[in-house]
Simulated assay, not measured.
Amino acid sequence: MELRHLMTFKTIIDAGGFKKAADELGYAQSSITAHIKELEQELGYPLFDRLGKSIALTQAGRRFLPYALDMINLYSKSKEVMKEANEPSGELKIGASESLMVYWLPSVIMDFMKHYPKVELRIKTIDYDNLSNQLKKGDIDAAVLVETSSWKSKELTIQKIRDEKLSMIQSPHKTNHFASDTMLVTEYSCSWRPIMEYYLKKEGRTSVPRIELPSVEAIKKCVLCGLGRSMLPHFSVKDEIDKGELKAIKTDLEETPIAIYTAFHKDKWVSVNLEAFLNVLHNHKEV
């Protein structure tokens, strides 16, 4: 079983077709087709259903996929082991939630690059609904994210960096009745959205108007303009509260309902690059 055949198989799935895979790998489309035919002959089962211009994995293809990924990852790991020196160098891909990417990670990245300038750091957005797959496929080596304080995962190795609190905020200036009763919210996949919904339900305010916005920064700007209230991680609004630009409203939420975590796949080999990054993160846990 040749590695190039496995790589072709994976790329077809990631790219969404034989032609796109050929373009990405720099092969002729006939070569891509030949790779898959040889792999199918070796396995004794078809891996793809060809449905006109579209393709889909067969049942055998779905069964084979995790093993193909394991073999590809093992090959990559063996190369890293042979190349890797004591000094971290080369690529490191970190997935990060938007709030941390904007309000906490910049100082971590600055510290990391100061100590490990030979590492090519790539920060990518987390797909919360597909995080395990992102880590399994190697799209990212590890994730830094905000989750509930009791978060657990069977597929991931997770480490809590520090507990965090949520702050209910509003403009310090007088607002009209609509604005004082309107909640500016994140999308449902956000880890603290259910906590906010539970709080509103407990307060008997499930029918309050909601405006859903795509980012923490957009929500903050709208609160600053007096468009409504919101509930956000305290680290993302601390500076504005300290300056009096935002007003924190007392709630009866538990003190630390959320936390900052690192996560990587349970089968992931922790390279010296990743180990160095995790160490820097933990050194910043009190910052």
Rank of each mutant, 00 (worst) to 15 (best):
V287C: 11
D242P: 05
L51T: 11
V146A: 02
M183F: 10
D252R: 00
A21V: 03
K93H: 10
Y75N: 11
S31M: 13
K79D: 05
I169E: 00
K220I: 15
K152G: 03
S31K: 10
P172I: 03
I55E: 01
L51P: 03
E42H: 04
D129N: 15
V108K: 00
L39T: 05
K136N: 08
E240V: 08
V185Y: 09
L145A: 00
F235V: 09
I258T: 03
Y198I: 08
R162S: 12
R162E: 03
R50W: 07
A22F: 01
I211P: 03
T182K: 02
L74Q: 14
A28E: 15
E286N: 11
M168E: 13
S89N: 10
M113W: 07
L213N: 05
V272A: 11
K250T: 08
N133Y: 07
I32Y: 06
K124Y: 10
P66E: 01
V102W: 09
P257R: 06
S149P: 06
I123Y: 01
S230H: 02
P46N: 02
G226H: 03
S132A: 10
P194T: 08
E24K: 13
R4N: 14
V81T: 11
I13E: 06
E24N: 08
L227Y: 14
G61L: 00
A143P: 03
L281Q: 05
I249L: 10
K285S: 03
A263L: 10
H234G: 10
M1S: 04
I241R: 02
P194W: 10
L274H: 01
D267Y: 03
N130Y: 06
H115Q: 12
A56P: 07
Q59K: 15
G226K: 05
R4L: 12
E212S: 08
V144F: 00
V146D: 00
I241K: 04
F64C: 04
R229C: 15
A34S: 13
K152E: 13
T251E: 03
I241W: 03
A21M: 10
I123K: 05
L92H: 06
G244Y: 09
K77W: 14
I32C: 02
S180H: 07
D181L: 09
S189F: 12
K124T: 12
T186H: 12
K20T: 05
K136V: 02
T256F: 09
S207G: 04
K160G: 11
Q159F: 07
D23P: 02
M82D: 14
A68C: 11
E187C: 06
I219S: 06
V270R: 08
S76E: 14
E254L: 04
D163C: 06
T206P: 08
V223W: 15
S180V: 01
F178T: 12
D14E: 15
K238N: 14
K285H: 01
N73M: 15
N86A: 14
V280K: 04
L65C: 02
F64I: 09
R205M: 13
V272P: 07
D163E: 15
E240S: 06
E98C: 10
M231G: 06
D70P: 00
H5I: 07
S54D: 09
R162K: 15
T157G: 06
N133T: 12
R122F: 13
E40H: 03
E286S: 13
W151M: 14
I241G: 02
S189D: 11
G138T: 00
